[in-house]
Design a protein around this nucleic acid. Structure first.
Lengths: 186, 186
DNA sequence: AAGCGCATGTAGCACTCGCTACACGCCTAC
DNA sequence: GTAGGCGTGTAGCGAGTGCTACATGCGCTT
């Protein structure tokens, strides 16, 4: 009998996109090896073989997802620089509301929860992601902003607060809050 | 042989404080029946007997915890009214940093994560908790504030953003952000 | 041709999960 | 007294968990 099936030639790199897709859809909490393996077209046995253990697998997948997210951020916000801080915040919040970004948002809050609970590695991961977002935000500040560094920190605080309120059904509260801030056009 | 042990006379009400304590310490994620039962001095069998199923148990315990949190909030912030918005924010953030509040914070982000992931009931729970916090915050605004309603929404956004940044190791970022806001004394 | 190591499949281990079946003792109603 | 319900203990079910043991085939080197 001749060889009928080809070898899939699996590798970490070929598995990561499929694993990332599954984790973005189903979250970290419900990420157990067998469903992950099924999503990636392999077996739990092989996931452990390639990644060593589940923790390392999650670490690698999260790093992979962070890369995807960075790219999506850059691609999602237009090239032309914002003119006002208010415009800057509006653009980023609009992008955060896009359906495509929803899985990233859900995953992000899961990471925050893990960080708050002290789950090892989560705080560090969240901290570096936030640092990256902050420095990206600095590049998005209006060109004539008097204090782009401090302003980015201020806007980041407002943005993250708004995103959280949006998640729990208080998007309107956040919007009205921004209207009562110094960002509101008057 | 005579009756040597007294009946503990268990009930939902007597169990709730112990269950709440355990969930505040260990989180919702790791809240499985057997450890919960052990913490409450009973068995998983009896937890199901009293609450029907795990979901109802969690609902009841969360409601109980919300009550405790409200009381802690009122007790933690002093009676005298804040004079400035900046002072108002500072007080609430200071209280959020207190060790006693830490379990509530961790639990809160877990609920937010559940809401973002669409876990049934979480969004509704989070929304009502946030609404309660918002109306409480309105009562804490400075007496002479020109727009206490809008201002409370603004401060809530800033506060929650700051709390999140604090959780992920960016407390300093949040602090510098507040310094670059219109709240900063100048 | 022989040996070797890499990638993979099958089975299974020891454990935890939410929940249930069953039995038993106590208290109250008839 | 006797029947029934209420609270409780013990034991277990079926599913899922991370991970491992073992075998096997395939391609490469010598």
């Amino acid at each position: 009998m001749s060889k009928l099936i080809s070898k899939p030639q699996m590798s970490k790199e070929s598995l990561l996109p499929l694993l990332a897709q599954h984790i973005l859809e189903h979250g970290l909490g419900g990420a157990s090896l067998r469903p992950l393996a099924k999503a990636a077209g392999t077996s739990d046995r092989m996931l452990i073989y390639h990644f060593g253990n589940k923790e390392q697998l999650l670490t690698d997948v999260l790093a992979h997802i962070a890369g995807i997210y960075s790219a999506a951020l850059d691609a999602g916000v237009g090239d032309e620089r914002a003119v006002t801080r208010q415009q800057c915040v509006a653009r980023i919040l609009a992008q955060g509301r896009e359906p495509m970004m929803q899985p990233f948002m859900a995953l992000w809050w899961e990471i925050v929860a893990g960080a708050a609970r002290g789950t090892p590695g989560y705080r560090e991961a969240a901290e570096s992601m936030m640092a990256e977002l902050l420095s990206w935000l600095e590049t998005q500040m209006p060109a004539d902003d008097p204090d782009p560094v401090g302003g980015a920190r201020y806007l980041l605080t407002l943005i993250e607060g708004s995103l959280m309120l949006g998640v729990v059904g208080h998007a309107r509260t956040a919007r009205e809050g921004l209207l009562a801030s110094d960002l509101a056009p008057n």
